[in-house]
Amino acid sequence: NQASVVANQLIPINTALALVMMRSEVVTPVGIPAEDIPRLVSMQVNRAVPLGTTLMPDMVKGYA
């Protein structure tokens, strides 16, 4: 199964993503693939992302 990017902490709106904020986990539904974690670093989220939430492409500015 494909691992997705999951929030490792609460990520406030407009926060630039850092490695420590993300982990990979096999979840349903599938979100952003875990292999894209390096690409996500320094991109901003466009909403608050609670701990344990799967990151979806529409949550990250400039990802989709």
Rank of each mutant, 00 (worst) to 15 (best):
I37R: 06
V6H: 00
N46M: 11
N46C: 05
R47W: 06
M59P: 02
I11M: 03
A34V: 08
R39M: 11
I32H: 02
E35I: 12
V5S: 03
N14K: 07
Q9P: 01
G62H: 08
Q2W: 15
T28W: 12
I32Q: 00
G62D: 12
L17C: 03
A48N: 14
G31A: 03
L17W: 02
T15E: 08
L19E: 10
N8T: 12
T53W: 11
I32P: 01
Q2S: 11
Q9D: 08
R47N: 06
D36T: 07
M59V: 08
T54S: 04
I37T: 06
T28I: 11
E25T: 08
M21F: 06
V6E: 02
M56D: 04
T28Y: 13
P29M: 05
A34T: 07
P33G: 06
A64W: 11
T54G: 02
K61A: 13
T28L: 15
A34W: 07
M59A: 07
L51I: 15
G52N: 10
S24C: 05
D36S: 12
S24T: 15
Q9C: 05
G52M: 05
P33T: 07
R47E: 10
L10Y: 15
K61M: 11
P50Q: 13
M59E: 02
N46S: 10
T28Q: 12
R39V: 09
L17A: 00
V60K: 02
N14P: 00
D36Y: 13
A7Y: 03
L10T: 11
V27E: 01
P12T: 09
A48F: 11
P29A: 04
T53R: 14
S24D: 10
S4E: 00
E25N: 12
L55F: 10
V5E: 00
A3I: 08
S4G: 04
S24V: 11
V26L: 13
V30A: 15
L51P: 15
G31E: 00
L17H: 00
A64T: 15
G52R: 04
V45H: 00
S4I: 02
N1Q: 15
I32R: 01
A64L: 15
I13H: 09
N8H: 07
G62A: 08
P29H: 05
T15L: 04
P50A: 15
M22K: 00
P33N: 11
P33F: 07
I37F: 03
V5Y: 01
M21R: 00
Q2P: 15
V41N: 04
I37D: 01
V45Q: 00
M22D: 02
A48K: 14
S42T: 09
M59S: 05
A3V: 09
M21V: 03
A16R: 11
G62V: 04
V6P: 00
R23A: 07
P29E: 05
K61S: 15
T54V: 10
D36L: 13
A3E: 10
R23E: 06
A7R: 02
G31L: 02
V45M: 05
R39A: 09
D58I: 09
A7W: 02
V27T: 13
T54Y: 01
V41P: 01
K61H: 13
N1I: 11
M21C: 04
A16C: 07
T28M: 13
D36N: 12
G62F: 08
G31T: 02
G52S: 06
V30P: 14
L19D: 08
P57H: 07
A18K: 14
V41H: 04
I37L: 11
Q2N: 13
L40P: 02
L17S: 01
A48C: 07
L10F: 15
N14A: 08
M56I: 06
M59C: 04
T54I: 07
A7S: 11
K61T: 14
N1Y: 13
Q9M: 14
V26H: 11
V27P: 00
R39K: 14
Q44A: 09
V27A: 07
A3Q: 11
P50G: 13
V6K: 03
L19K: 11
E25D: 12
A16P: 10
A18P: 01
N14F: 13
R23P: 02
V27H: 03
P38G: 10
V5N: 01
L55E: 00
V41L: 12
L51T: 11
A3T: 11
G62M: 09
M43I: 04
V6Q: 03
L19I: 09
N1V: 15
L40C: 03
V49P: 03
Q9E: 11
T15K: 05
D58V: 08
P12Y: 05
T53H: 12
T15N: 04
R23I: 07
N14E: 08
Q9I: 15
P38Y: 15
R39G: 09
T28H: 14
M56E: 09
L19T: 10
P33R: 09
P57F: 07
A18S: 13
T28R: 09
V49Y: 03
P33Y: 08
K61Q: 15
R39P: 02
K61L: 12
P50N: 07
L40H: 00
A34H: 07
S42P: 02
N8A: 14
V26C: 06
M43Q: 08
V6I: 14
V60A: 01
M22H: 01
M21H: 14
I32Y: 01
A64V: 13
P38D: 11
P12F: 05
L19Y: 10
P38I: 09
G31D: 01
V5F: 02
M59N: 05
Q9R: 14
V27F: 03
I37N: 01
D58F: 14
K61R: 14
E25Q: 13
M59Q: 04
P12V: 05
A18M: 10
V60S: 00
L17K: 00
G62L: 09
V60M: 04
P38A: 10
S4P: 01
E25M: 11
D58C: 05
V26P: 07
V30G: 10
L17I: 10
V5L: 03
P33K: 07
T28S: 15
L17R: 00
V30W: 10
T28K: 13
R47V: 13
P38E: 09
M21K: 02
A7E: 02
G31Y: 01
I11Q: 00
L55W: 00
M22W: 01
T53D: 09
A7P: 01
Q44E: 12
P38M: 10
E35N: 15
V5T: 07
T54K: 04
R23H: 06
P29T: 04
T54Q: 03
S24A: 13
M43C: 06
A64C: 06
S24Y: 07
L40T: 02
V20K: 12
P12M: 07
I32N: 01
P57Q: 08
S4C: 04
K61F: 10
L40N: 02
M56Y: 09
V20E: 15
T15C: 04
V45S: 05
E35R: 12
S42F: 09
S42M: 11
L51N: 11
